[in-house]
């Protein structure tokens, strides 16, 4: 049963970006050995905040802390926000340990989204590594739902091992959609794995691309994104202006007040997390920036 809500003294609530709103956990499902997908709904019965693909929320676990988590659900599914969380430490462990009916504090959504409107009429090449598929999934949902607005959809997805692949059934289903190509690979495979083995950049050799008609959306570990950008720019002729990536830095506030997520002149939280690569050229790969 969802908790009831009392909010004394909320006259400033609408204007306080630091104040979480209470949501309850509507479902939790296991994706892999360490990764879970949680869906939350507002505790007060009001429809959940809408979001744009690529945006994130701050999720607060009572007394434990708050974490920036990308929204991984369908942007057109009203009333619910979905997150895919990998347990890598005490705070994420606390988050994935929530059960149905538990509540979470939610702030947001925050940040810049994938430029889905601006790239209409193009081939969209989505390149994801590991948990990086989560913030791209809403973009994939959007493209599949508005299929006529885009030409080809290509998804390249790399994970550490077969057991680490997210959304396996959906990947297969997306691959069966018209004008859609889904290629997955893993860095390390066992003898029983029948799929591809090799880092995500090795998938490029299976593609025929139209570089002048292609936009690329990338999310994954920073080093992986750097390798992918090298491949796109140097070997495939995709322009920096047509490459978008989602960056990660420490975030405490999500609204540019805490200073933690600075990346050169940018705040990842409010100028990003999605950036056009043209803006980050010269910053990406700088050691200890």
């Amino acid at each position: 049963m969802p908790p009831t809500l009392e909010q004394p003294g909320i006259s400033h609530a609408a204007s306080d970006p630091m104040r979480p709103e209470p949501y309850f956990v509507a479902s939790v499902s296991r994706e892999t050995h360490d990764t879970f997908t949680l869906s939350v709904e507002p505790a007060n019965g009001v429809p959940a905040a809408g979001f744009a693909p690529g945006q994130f929320s701050m999720l607060y676990v009572f007394g434990v802390g708050e974490l920036p988590i990308s929204i991984s659900g369908d942007p057109e599914q009203a009333g619910r926000l979905t997150y895919t969380v990998r347990s890598v430490g005490p705070a994420t462990q606390a988050l994935v340990s929530r059960v149905t009916g538990d509540w979470l504090g939610v702030r947001g959504p925050f940040g810049a989204a994938w430029p889905l409107e601006a790239v209409r009429g193009k081939d969209v090449l989505i390149i994801a590594g590991g948990i990086g598929l989560a913030p791209l999934r809403p973009a994939i949902y959007h493209i599949l739902r508005h299929r006529d607005d885009y030409v080809r959809l290509i998804v390249l997805y790399g994970a550490r091992s077969p057991g680490d692949l997210l959304y396996k059934k959906e990947l297969a289903a997306w691959g069966r959609s018209p004008d859609t190509q889904v290629l997955t690979t893993v860095d390390y495979g066992g003898v029983n794995w029948r799929g591809r083995v090799g880092v995500v950049t090795t998938l490029f050799r299976h593609l025929r691309m139209h570089p002048d008609k292609t936009v690329a959306f990338i999310c994954g570990p920073e080093i992986m994104m750097r390798y992918v950008i090298t491949e796109l720019e140097e070997n495939r002729g995709v322009l920096a202006n047509d490459i978008y990536l989602s960056m990660e830095r420490n975030m405490k506030c999500a609204v540019g007040f805490c200073g933690h997520c600075q990346y050169g002149p940018y705040f990842i939280c409010k100028d990003g997390p999605v950036f056009c690569y043209q803006k980050l050229r010269g910053l990406l790969g700088k050691h200890e920036l």
């Binding site: 590594g129 590991g130 994970a159 860095d187 994954g220 080093i223 390798y227």
Partner: peptide, 8 residues
Amino acid sequence: LQLLDVYA
């Protein structure tokens, strides 16, 4: 890139 084991 594989050696970096970026998803570890």
